[in-house]
């Protein structure tokens, strides 16, 4: 990723950042410490500081890859919409990185936005094991429930134009992808059958974060500091978010703590209801845990097809296909648990 990160490009970037932050922050003299944190097919993340006199504003740039515009992201929301969603969530009291400014064409940085840099940890294994977070861990499940209730309380009329995807369309989407792989998975068929037979009919659709899990939460010793990565947000069944954070893949080995590897479902549900969320039906949450587990299993298969097609010949890409079976044992534990 460092091949495109030349000193010249960093200079252009700094100039564009100064223009952009100048619209929001007073008396910015310069930006410094520009460095790339991550880059993927759908977005880049950069860290920098805006210096105003003796004050330094720690900031994050999130933009389209390579500073492009009108970047078509399959299921992801456009970056300007992502910024709008973060602001809507903030109004409900959701901890988020406050948006400093949304990029404009004249900034020359492509599509994206700048937000405040929150200090904390996102690496799930550290959050689950480091002593620094020992006091936070018992509180996290309840906090996650409270936060999700607030996300789901965003008034429907305020939500920008984003995909509406209740269970029916989620199932159809992943059924099509699975069918195109032409490799039989009897356990996935069992899961699809369960999802068809138990399809929710009374869906009360809300804003759904779409990727609310351990790994996308900024955690400090005091608990959840910010909810990150809103690019998969959509309008859907709110129980999707409660189910997704329970998917075993996001417990990182701590399998007896269903919520993110750190807490119990009961704590999360109690927090959700106490913060104004609708009463939780555990069976409905389980439904979305099954769908989420199946979805991750099929996503592992998609990565193999990227390898087979020659798009990405890395060993990493190839080997992830052999993680699909992890989701099969998780699905069996959910659907056909063995007698102890």
């Amino acid at each position: 990723m460092s091949t495109t990160d030349t000193p010249e490009k960093r200079h252009d970037l700094a100039a564009g950042l100064e223009t952009a932050v100048g619209r929001s922050l007073a008396n910015v003299d310069l930006v410094s410490g520009v460095r790339r944190l991550s880059g993927g097919a759908s977005q880049e993340t950069w860290s920098f500081d805006a210096i105003a006199g003796t004050h330094s504003h720690p900031l994050i740039l999130r933009r389209a890859p390579g500073g492009t515009t009108n970047n078509k992201r399959d299921t992801a929301v456009p970056l300007a919409t992502e910024a709008a969603l973060i602001q809507l969530a903030e109004q409900q009291g959701v901890p988020v990185p406050p948006i400093t400014v949304v990029l404009k064409d004249e900034d020359g940085l492509g599509d994206g936005f700048i937000m405040e840099r929150i200090e904390g940890e996102t690496i799930a294994r550290k959050i689950l094991r480091d002593a620094e977070y020992a006091d936070a861990r018992p509180k996290l499940a309840r906090q996650c429930g409270e936060i999700l209730a607030k996300i789901h309380a965003v008034p429907r009329g305020d939500i920008p134009d984003i995909q509406v995807s209740p269970a029916r369309s989620e199932i159809d989407k992943y059924r099509d992808i699975y069918a195109s792989m032409k490799h039989p998975h009897p356990v996935f068929e069992l899961a699809f059958r369960y999802l068809e037979d138990n399809l929710p009919t009374d869906e009360n659709l809300t804003l759904v974060h779409g990727d609310f899990r351990n790994g996308n939460l900024m955690i400090g010793p005091d608990g959840v500091r910010a909810v990150l990565d809103w690019e998969l947000a959509h309008v859907g069944d709110p129980m999707e978010d409660l189910g997704w954070i329970c998917v075993n893949s996001w417990r990182f080995g701590e399998i007896d703590n269903p919520v993110g590897g750190f807490g119990s479902r009961e704590d999360m549900f109690a927090g959700y209801e106490a913060a104004g969320g609708a009463p939780v039906d555990p069976e409905r949450v389980k439904y979305w845990e099954v769908l989420g587990t199946l979805k991750w299993g099929i996503m592992c298969m998609i990565m193999v097809s990227a390898f087979s097609s020659g798009m990405d010949r890395s060993v990493e890409r190839a080997a992830i296909g052999r993680r699909s079976s992890e989701t099969e044992i998780d699905l069996l534990n959910l659907l056909a648990p063995r007698k102890a």
Binding site: N248, R251, G253, E254, I255, R322, R323, S325, E326, I329, D330, N333
Partner: peptide, 10 residues
């Protein structure tokens, strides 16, 4: 799993 990920907790 015994082939792919024998260290998977589940």
């Amino acid at each position: 799993l015994s082939i792919d990920q024998p260290r998977y907790a589940a």
